[in-house]
């Protein structure tokens, strides 16, 4: 008796990825988290409309919102990046492996069989997609609220120069792309923590807790230059894209830091998951 290698169906990887995306995006909890993320930009917009803030008060870019709705996108990102976005991404990333282990579906996936490395990669892809969707939610909510309440006008940059609406929108897309990439280190961290436990709640809480601790460390001036290595350090660096001369070198350096975190936590997650005993 010998087995012939079973024929692999064309498009099988795409099918698994679609299944994983459906699992993440059709889940009510994840949809609710996305819906909640649309809230802060709309609330900030309404609050500013009702009562214009004094100059220099509140989060970054708040003062400019009344003059140009585009700035509501940046304000919303500044407000959501420290906590709301890590919370939503931490929930989905923490749940990715630990959630399947917890309800026991992991053992059935692995005996289908799905290669462990392949499953980890597909899970990572789905969390990244969710992370991008979460950011898009904040940005789109900010953009729509801003456009309705304040209108979209030519963008006055941090340097004082003004660029056209088209260029402003382009720069805003750049901001979203930058922030999406800036959050990949967090995705890798959450995925790694998710391979450590069979408790999804523990994995979610740990991911969010680590992020908050790192943000607190980032706010301690005594730590000096070493803070630049923290994965949260450059999250708000998207302001760089609102200068007349964008320093792409700086943006690339900051992005390379995320690549480092992806490499470290990705390898740890892979090493852990591919050798783990599945006892759940």
């Amino acid at each position: 008796m010998s087995l012939v290698e079973p024929a692999t169906q064309p498009g099988h990887l795409g099918r698994l990825i679609r299944s994983e995306l459906a699992l993440v995006f059709r889940r009510r909890r994840n949809q609710a988290l996305l819906a909640v993320l649309a809230g802060p930009p709309a609330l900030i917009g309404i609050a500013v409309k009702v009562s214009a803030p004094p100059p220099g008060a509140g989060p970054d870019f708040l003062g400019q919102v009344t003059g140009n709705g585009l700035f509501l996108v940046y304000t919303a990102l500044s407000v959501c990046l420290p906590l709301f976005l890590p919370l939503a991404i931490g929930v989905v990333a923490g749940d990715s492996i630990a959630g399947e282990a917890n309800i026991g579906t992991l053992r059935y996936l692995l005996t289908v069989p799905v290669g462990r490395g392949r499953l980890l990669a597909v899970k990572a892809l789905a969390v990244l997609a969710y992370s991008a969707a979460a950011l898009a939610m904040v940005a789109v909510s900010g953009l729509i609220t801003g456009a309705i309440l304040f209108g979209i006008h030519p963008l006055t940059l941090l340097s004082g120069d003004t660029v056209s609406v088209g260029s402003g929108v382009l720069r805003t897309l750049g901001v979203i792309a930058y922030v999406t990439f800036a959050l990949t280190g967090l995705v890798a961290l959450g995925l790694f923590i998710s391979t450590l436990t069979e408790g999804p709640i523990a994995a979610m809480a740990a991911t969010v807790a680590v992020t908050i601790i790192v943000e607190v460390l980032d706010a301690v001036p005594q730590l000096g230059a070493s803070r630049q290595w923290l994965f949260t350090h450059n999250w708000l660096g998207f302001g760089e894209l609102l200068r007349l001369q964008i320093n792409f070198g700086t943006l690339l350096t900051w992005s390379a830091l995320q690549l480092g975190y992806i490499a470290i936590f990705g390898s740890l997650a892979w090493a852990r998951f591919t050798t783990k005993d599945i006892t759940s």
Partner: peptide
């Protein structure tokens, strides 16, 4: 062991989608 919020058929579809020989 299956996903509680998916239907029986959707749960089977998920396992079938994971099978590269299916």
């Amino acid at each position: 062991a299956f996903h509680p919020y998916l239907t029986g058929a959707d749960n089977l579809r998920r396992l079938d989608a994971a099978d590269r020989t299916a």
